[in-house]
Simulated assay, not measured.
Amino acid sequence: MHFYQNERIALFIDGANLYATAKSLGFDIDYKRLLALFRQKGQLVRALYYTALAEDQEYSSIRPLIDWLDYNGFTMVTKPTKEFTDASGRRKVKGNMDIELSVDAMRLADNLDHIVLFSGDGDFRSLVAALQQKGKRVSVVSTLQTQPPMVADELRRQADQFVDLADLEQLICRDPAARTAREGGRSFGGSSRGGYGARTEPASFQENDDLSEEV
């Protein structure tokens, strides 16, 4: 993983995609350690986390994670999910954040040197190309260590640098013992001590932005 110390860096995290990638590799992400790692790599300008929320629910399993990140150095970008019924009568939940992430990346690009995209979604290839045309370096963080790989080949080829999340495990993983103790004895509230694990992302957003379930 190559960065220049004088680079202005921003992290753009596709929350659902990163959750699915970490889960497929079998570890939880400590977001405090993740932030610290990239602060060491250069001048970290911003870390943005994108996820959709089911606002009609009294309690969302992702809400504690969002609150923690919001108080601990991340910029949260959320929007409500949309439900609709397709032609076959199946209820679908739509929560795609690609447009929001792409618009923000292009808007902030003039103040950045290096964009780090945490996603393997091939739809971001055009965004990466557009950022490169503006003279920006783009790194993509996902993994090839699963079957099938979590990163689209066209996205990996377009990036200036591909970083396999598996190679970062020892640097950003969450201590399982600490997680067990916290889950067993403490609230998930906004304490700034320790990191927060990726598995807080609800199961309904594990793999795809457009999801469906039987009614």
Rank of each mutant, 00 (worst) to 15 (best):
Val93Ile: 11
Gly95Ile: 01
Asn96Phe: 05
Met97Cys: 07
Ile99Ala: 15
Ile99Pro: 07
Glu100Gln: 14
Leu101His: 01
Ser102Phe: 07
Ala109Phe: 01
Ala109Ser: 13
Asp110Cys: 08
Ile115Ala: 03
Val116Asp: 06
Val116Arg: 05
Val116Trp: 02
Leu117Trp: 00
Phe118Thr: 03
Asp121Met: 08
Phe124Gly: 07
Arg125Tyr: 08
Leu127Ala: 07
Ala129Gln: 14
Ala129Leu: 11
Ala130Val: 08
Leu131Met: 03
Gln132Thr: 08
Gln133Tyr: 01
Lys136Ala: 04
Arg137Val: 10
Arg137Lys: 15
Ser139Asn: 02
Ser139Gln: 00
Ser139Leu: 01
Val140Thr: 06
Val141His: 04
Thr143Ser: 03
Thr146Asn: 02
Thr146Met: 00
Gln147Ile: 12
Pro148Cys: 03
Val151Lys: 00
Ala152Ile: 05
Ala152Phe: 10
Asp153Met: 14
Glu154Val: 14
Leu155Pro: 04
Asp160Cys: 07
Asp160Thr: 10
Gln161Tyr: 10
Gln161Ile: 09
Phe162Ala: 00
Glu169Arg: 15
Ile172Gly: 10
Cys173Tyr: 09
Arg174Ser: 13
Asp175Gln: 12
Ala177Phe: 11
Ala178Met: 08
Arg179Ser: 13
Thr180Ile: 15
Glu183Val: 11
Arg186Trp: 12
Arg186Ser: 11
Arg186Glu: 14
Ser187Pro: 06
Ser187Glu: 11
Phe188Met: 10
Gly189Ser: 14
Arg193Trp: 12
Gly195Val: 06
Tyr196Phe: 15
Arg199Cys: 13
